[in-house]
Design a protein around this nucleic acid. Structure first.
Lengths: 337, 337
DNA sequence: GTGAAAGCGCTAACAG
DNA sequence: CTGTTAGCGCTTTCAC
C-alpha cells in the first residue's frame, strides 16, 4: 500500500520522538520497558524494516561483507562460498557478492564499488590483480582478506591453502607409486595458486633426483576442456616420451581428462594415471574415482570470515595456511619396477 | 591515509559548492565545460569514489539487484547466476546476493533485508516460500522476478523453464525407446519445479495408456546422494517390479545414480536407463554421457535481468516460459520388443 | 552557470 | 527515561 514506514511514522503514531523509537528498536535499556515493548509491537504491526542504507550512512559502515570472486560457476569457488555464507550468516552479516570474470581491472573496480556501499570489509577469492593493486590497498582502511592469493598491507590478511605443499604431496604420491615421467596440466597462470602448486611439483621432482622438464608442463586454464585437450596432447606424444601420469591443476580439468580418456579408449589408470586437486564433490563419483589433494574449501571460507570479523574487532589477525590431505582413490596406478 | 574524500572535500579544494561538484560528476550540462572537466580531473586525482549508501538514500533506490537463492553450490544455480551476472553487469547493475539454504523463513527475511538496502528490484531463484508470502509481495513496490517458481502479484514477474513440458519430454523419450516401467526420482517437494516435472511425467505416462503408480516415485532432494540411494532402492526391488528406466529430477542426482551403478556393477544403460534434467556441464562428461533435458540456465538468468530492468522502466513485462530440448546421449537404451 | 538550503532515514550526543 | 539537535554524503529544488 503506502511506502515502507520509517522510524518517524512509528514515532508519530506512538506519540514519541524518533530517537526514542530508534533506541527502543535497538533494545536500549535507556528506554522504559513499557514503551520499548509498545514500540516494538507497533513496528511489527506496521511491518517496519530498517533502512540499512540510512543506517550504514550514519554509522559509516554496515554489517555487510563484500565478496569478490573471479566466477561463481566453479565448484571449488561454490564450496568456499558455502563456508563463507554459513559463517557470515551466523555472525549476522550479509554478503554483497560481485564477480569479475577473472578480469583484474574489474576486480579493482569492484573493490571501489563495494567500498562505496560502506561494506564492513572485503573478502577476495583467488585475486587476479597484481602490482598496481598495492597502492589501492594501502589507502583502504577497511580490512581485506584474500583467499588463495597473497597480498600484504596494513589491513590485509590472507587465508590460503598451502599450495606448494599440496603440489608437492600430489607429485610425491605419484613418485611413490613408481611414476617417473609426470606431466603437469597447468592452471590460470595469473593466479597465485597455480604458481605455488607448480613449485611443489618441481620440488618433489628434484628431491627425487629427477629434473624439471619444461615440455612436460601443458598449458591449461583449469577448465573441463583443458583436461580434454591434455589427453589429446598425450595421445600425440611418441611412445618413449609419453608420461605415465598427469598431475592436474584442479579436479575440473582432471575430470575432463578422465572423460576424454574413456571416449578415446584410454584406460585410466592402467594406461595413464591422473591426479587432481581440490576434492570437489564430483571427484568422488567420477569413473574411476579421482585421486586428489583435498582443499579444505569450506574451512577456507569460514576462516576468511573469522579473520575478517576478528580484524573488525581490532584484534590481531595472522595469516592462515591450510594443508589438505591426499585423498587416494582409483585414478593412480602403482607402476611395476 | 586520510578517509575517503567526499564531494565536499572536492568542493573545498576546487573552490566551488558541493552541488556544483555533484552536477559536474553527473555530467550535467548545467555546469560549464571548463569547471566540469576541472572537477572530474580533480576527482580522479583524489581517487574519489561516490558513497553509494548516501546516493541510494537520497534517490530511494540504487543500481543494485537483490538476488536470493536457496544455495550457491549447485551447478544449475551457478549457471543461472552466470547469465544473471553477465546481463546485470552489462546494464551497470551490481548484485547483492543472499542465500537461504532452502529455508522459507529465511527467504522472507532476506527479502526484507535486501529491500532495506534500497535495491532496485529482486530476483529470486527457486523460491521455496509459499502462502504467507503473497501478503508480503503485495506490499512491495519494487519489482520482483521469480525464476522457476510461480508467484503472482502487482509487481511480480516470472521467468521459468516449462517444467511440465520438460518432464513430459523426458518421459516421452523413455516411452519411445520402449520403456514401460519408469521410476521417477523426486526433487525437493516444496519447490514448484518438482511438481511440474512430475506432472509432465504423469501426463506422458497416461497418454501412453499407462497408469501413474505412486510407488514408482522415489523420494529425493536432487542431491548426488539421493541418486545413490535410488540405485539401492532399485537393487532391492523384486525382478518383475523393477523399473527399466529412471527419470531423475535433475542431473546431479542422475550423476549420483550413475556412479553408484558403476560401483555396484550395474551397467548403464544395459541394465538400467537413466534420464536427467538440466544439462549441467558434467552431464556431458559422465560415463556414460547423460541423456537429459536441457534447461536454458544462462538464458534464464539473462531474461530475469531483462524482465527486471524492463519493469524498472515501467514498461510492460510478461511472464516468460522457456522450453529446453531433449539432449540424447548414451544413458538410455532402446528396449527390444 | 553556480550557490544555498533542505532532506533522504537513521543514530548519537546533549539536554532536561 | 525521553525529546531536541545535528549530521552521515549525496541530490535537488530554488534563488541569484
Amino acid at each position: 500500500m503506502s511506502q515502507r514506514p520509517s522510524i518517524k511514522d512509528i514515532a508519530r503514531i506512538a506519540g514519541v520522538a524518533p530517537s526514542t523509537v530508534s533506541r527502543a528498536l535497538a533494545d536500549s535499556p535507556r528506554v522504559s520497558l513499557a514503551t520499548r515493548e509498545r514500540i516494538q509491537a507497533l513496528a511489527r504491526e506496521l511491518d517496519y524494516t530498517p533502512s540499512l542504507a540510512a543506517r550504514s550512512l550514519v554509522m559509516g559502515s554496515s554489517p555487510v561483507i563484500g565478496v569478490i570472486s573471479p566466477t561463481l560457476s566453479d565448484p571449488y569457488i561454490a564450496s568456499v562460498m558455502k563456508g563463507l555464507e554459513e559463517a557470515s550468516h551466523q555472525a549476522g552479516y550479509q554478503r554483497l557478492v560481485a564477480s569479475t570474470q577473472g578480469d583484474a581491472e574489474r576486480e579493482i573496480e569492484m573493490v571501489r564499488m563495494l567500498l562505496g556501499h560502506n561494506v564492513g570489509g572485503l573478502i577476495i577469492l583467488s585475486s587476479r590483480a597484481q602490482g598496481a593493486y598495492q597502492e589501492l590497498l594501502a589507502q583502504i582502511s577497511e580490512p581485506i582478506v584474500f583467499v588463495n592469493a597473497l597480498h600484504t598491507g596494513e589491513h590485509v590478511y590472507n587465508v590460503a591453502t598451502d599450495n606448494e605443499h599440496g603440489g608437492w604431496l600430489a607429485t610425491q604420491h605419484l613418485l611413490t607409486q613408481g611414476h617417473r615421467r609426470i606431466a603437469y596440466l597447468a592452471g590460470p597462470t595469473r593466479g597465485r595458486s597455480y604458481v605455488a602448486r607448480a613449485a611443489g611439483y618441481r620440488r618433489a621432482l628434484e628431491e627425487a633426483g629427477l629434473s624439471f622438464e619444461r615440455q612436460l608442463v601443458i598449458p591449461g586454464d583449469g577448465s573441463i576442456r583443458a583436461g580434454r585437450e591434455a589427453l589429446h596432447w598425450w595421445l600425440n606424444q611418441p611412445d618413449e616420451q609419453r608420461p605415465t601420469a598427469f598431475f592436474c591443476y584442479n579436479d575440473l580439468s582432471a575430470l575432463g581428462l578422465l572423460s576424454e580418456a574413456h571416449q578415446q579408449g584410454v584406460n585410466i589408470p592402467d594406461d595413464l594415471s591422473v591426479m587432481g586437486f581440490d576434492n570437489v564433490p564430483m571427484a568422488k563419483i567420477s569413473i574411476p574415482p579421482l585421486t586428489t589433494v583435498e582443499q579444505r574449501t569450506h574451512e577456507l571460507g569460514r576462516l576468511a570470515v573469522v579473520s575478517l570479523l576478528t580484524a573488525l574487532e581490532n584484534k590481531p589477525v595472522t595469516d592462515i595456511f591450510l594443508r589438505g590431505e591426499l585423498i587416494v582413490r582409483a585414478s593412480v596406478k602403482r607402476m611395476e619396477e
